[in-house]
Every structure is written in C-alpha cells, then in structure tokens.
Amino acid sequence: MTTIVGLAAANPGQAADAQRSEAGELQDGTAVEAVTLSNAAGVSARVLTYGATLQSLTASDRDGRPADITLGYDETADYEAFPNYFGVTVGRYANRIAGGRFTLDGQTYQLSQNDSANSLHGGAQGFDKRNWRIVEVASGPVARVVMELESPDGDQGYPGNLTARVTYTLDDGGDLGILFEATSDAPTIVNMTNHALFNLAGVGAPQGAMDHWLMIPASTFTPVDETLIPTGELAPVAGSVFDFRHPRPVEDGLRNGSNPQIVIGRGYDHNWALDKGRTQEPGLAARLVHPASGRVLDVLTTEPGIQFYSGNFLDGTLVGKDNTVYRMGDGIALEPQTYPDAPNRPSFPTARIEPGTPYRHHMIYRVAVMPSDLEAEQAN
C-alpha cells in the first residue's frame, strides 16, 4: 500500500470539544443548529443540522497556519437557496440510478428524477434538503454529534419507513469520522455518503485543487454512458488516465480529450472499484496531497467504491465562502459509496438492506501534514 512517511499528527491524550449553537433559519422559519467539533491540534469541523452538512473542516499547514479546506457557504441560508451538495449528507441513495427506477422482489419503484431522466443523490428532496434532529452532543477523548432523520415509506419513491442516523466524531489525532446508519421496516436500498468538496490550499485559493496529488488504490473503475450511468463494465485503469494507484497530479489527464470517458464526464466524475472491497473496518480509499502547504487528506471507508469528481460542473455562477466565485476545478469530491446504479446491476455490490440487517457505512476524513516540503513523488 502506498504510504507517506513522517506525517505529523496531534499529541495523544488531549480531549476534543463539542459546542452547540444556533445557525440561522430556513425560508419557512425552521431553526437550524450547528455543532463545532475541535481538538487541541487545531483541527475543527462545523456541522449543520440542515442536510447534516459538513460546513467547514479546518486544518493547519506545515507552518501551523489554519485554513478551511472545504468548499461551501458562509451563511446557512445559502445552502437552501443555492443547493450544490457542498458537504452534505446524501441519501437515500448517493450517486445515480438509471431512469430513477429499480426493481426489488418483483416490484418496480419509480424514484424522483432530478438529473434528466435519472435520480441523483436521493432525488429532488433528498437527505441533503432536510433539517436533521440532534440526538446527542458530547465532548471527551472523542467529541461527537449524532443526528437523526425519519424518511417515510414512499419518500422520493423509496420503499420502507427508514430511520437514518449520522454520527460525526473528532479525535485528538485529526480523524473526522462519519458513521451512517439506517434501519427499515421493509426491504429497501440505501447508499449514504458525504459530499464534501476539498481544496487543501484553503478557502479562496486561486489555483483551486488542480495542483493536488491523488492516489486511489483501485485497479478498476466503472465506465459510464453519456448520462453518467455505469455501463456495467469494470474496466482496468492500467495504461489510462484513470490509473491513480501511484500518486499523480489531479490535473494530469483531466483534459485528455482522446479518452472518451473524460469527454463524457467533462473531466473525472467516475466510481473507482476499490481493491479492498467492502470491509468491516474503514480502509484507505484515497489520499490527497497538497505539496505547497503540506496538507494531506486520507479518505477511509468500509464501502467498496469511491466517486472522484473533479468539480467539472462548477461554472462561476455560485459565490461561496469569503466571496469566492467557484469555477471548474476549485474543489474535488472523494465520495465513498456503493457503486452507482447498483440496484440495476446484479454484478455490483448490493445496496439492499432488510429489517433485520441495518445499513452501516463508516468513513473517515484523516488530516495530517508532511513535515517538510517533500516532492509529491516522495509520497510513494
């Protein structure tokens, strides 16, 4: 496995803190709350109840200078007014389902279609557009906030009364854990993840995230058709611009028009089939490195896939944090998941759950720094 030697983390034994606060209102007057998790190493995460959203993740560079490394909005109201999935919890089903339709036990279900004919990220009123309920906030060796949401039978077309829960945790070493859990009273499908877009250079960095280096430990990926639905094939990454088994710049291959998959996605917007598969404990799914600042982000997951999206549809129409106009490539998403359209692809890992077999996905955003200005090649 590819490793980076000498990563610096916090000293063990320090407590982490959780602080609850008001965070404005939605258009209908519903109050939104925020919980800020922080540790002694200067890592902090602010989570909104609206969309169970990771509004910010702050981490220091190699010189100790903190910066928010996620795209998003400064004001809660903007997440409702200008939705773009920044940092939100997506569900019931992250990514795309072809035609917004799937069959379960002989019955066909028609879902909300919000991506042309397809269903994307749970539909027009997915989990990202709900105000979650806080059920627990705690400080300690690991600070945490637990949020819950009830999704009734038929919600966006999905079967089963579903209770969804998201737990954010922060320890003193820089691990921001996100645990997704769900129970249903009938067979259904679930695929939840976080949709943070990262720029490790920090909010407003003019070069965006294209100078970052990325590693994904996956030998295959799932090619897509012109509507970004997987064809069902597991294609080898070897010899292609989709080979990130060794770290290389994000921008390398991003505009390679000789690859039809890059043309279809307007860049990278694909699922990688992780070599580790689905696991009981979170395993490494991606490593993102910003050599100039020394910031490193590891993404770990129990799920079998990860969607790498290079911010291709950011078109300058959204004004985000610190009055930054977001353009193509200003941030990238690394979304651990079950494969897109898995309910319609029996060969893909299943997204089905039963009343007696609840859904569980544990992912981690792990932040660290390289202690010196190493060349990205030294990340091998």
Results as ranks from 00 to 15, higher is better:
residue 349 P to W: 06
residue 338 T to L: 10
residue 343 P to M: 12
residue 367 V to Y: 02
residue 348 F to I: 14
residue 352 R to F: 02
residue 356 G to L: 10
residue 366 R to D: 08
residue 354 E to C: 02
residue 339 Y to W: 14
residue 355 P to G: 07
residue 360 R to C: 04
residue 365 Y to M: 14
residue 356 G to N: 13
residue 340 P to Q: 09
residue 361 H to Q: 15
residue 354 E to W: 06
residue 361 H to A: 15
residue 367 V to G: 00
residue 338 T to C: 06
residue 353 I to H: 01
residue 347 S to N: 10
residue 346 P to W: 15
residue 356 G to F: 07
residue 352 R to W: 05
residue 348 F to H: 00
residue 349 P to C: 07
residue 363 M to W: 00
residue 351 A to P: 00
residue 365 Y to E: 07
residue 347 S to E: 15
residue 360 R to K: 12
residue 349 P to R: 08
residue 363 M to V: 08
residue 343 P to T: 13
residue 341 D to G: 04
residue 339 Y to K: 06
residue 358 P to Y: 09
residue 355 P to S: 07
residue 360 R to N: 02
residue 357 T to Q: 13
residue 357 T to M: 10
residue 352 R to V: 15
residue 340 P to L: 09
residue 360 R to Q: 12
residue 346 P to Q: 13
residue 362 H to N: 11
residue 343 P to K: 06
residue 340 P to H: 06
residue 353 I to N: 00
residue 338 T to R: 01
residue 366 R to G: 03
residue 340 P to Y: 03
residue 343 P to V: 10
residue 348 F to P: 01
residue 352 R to G: 04
residue 341 D to R: 04
residue 342 A to D: 04
residue 365 Y to T: 06
residue 364 I to W: 00
residue 355 P to V: 10
residue 350 T to I: 11
residue 342 A to T: 13
residue 350 T to Y: 01
residue 353 I to L: 07
residue 349 P to A: 13
residue 340 P to C: 08
